[in-house]
């Protein structure tokens, strides 16, 4: 059982890392602030989600697992807000120049 859970963790966390890598590659390769914003928010949100799902089986208790999920939800909320704020600022800058 525990081997199976470890396997789930390894697979999920590795998949999450791939998305983080994708986000970073996008950050470096995409041409401007707005497209980079896409790369960072979308890829990192799902990357963090997969890492969290992967870590839940390793949590000592149900409470710890739920705490991990709370972390992800809060990051999603923050990411949704921050991406809009940055996008607006970038758009305004683009308008004025």
């Amino acid at each position: 059982m525990s081997v199976l859970l470890d396997l789930v963790t390894i697979v999920m966390v590795s998949a999450g890392m791939v998305f983080f890598l994708a986000g970073t590659v996008g950050l470096l390769r995409f041409p401007d602030t707005l497209t980079r914003l896409h790369a960072l928010t979308k890829a990192d949100n799902i990357g963090l989600g997969l890492v969290v799902i992967g870590l839940v089986p390793q949590a000592g208790s149900l409470r710890d697992g739920l705490k991990l999920l709370c972390v992800w939800l809060l990051v999603l909320l923050a990411s949704a807000t921050v991406s809009q704020l940055v996008a607006q600022a970038a758009r305004r800058e683009g308008d004025s120049s």
Binding site: F19, G26, H38, N45, I46, G47
Partner: peptide, 24 residues
Amino acid sequence: LLQSVLAGLDVARRAFDPRLPLRP
């Protein structure tokens, strides 16, 4: 959940694609 997985895959595909298929 499904949509955000798709969103991540979409961005990952574009980021790793050597031709960088973007029409922003």
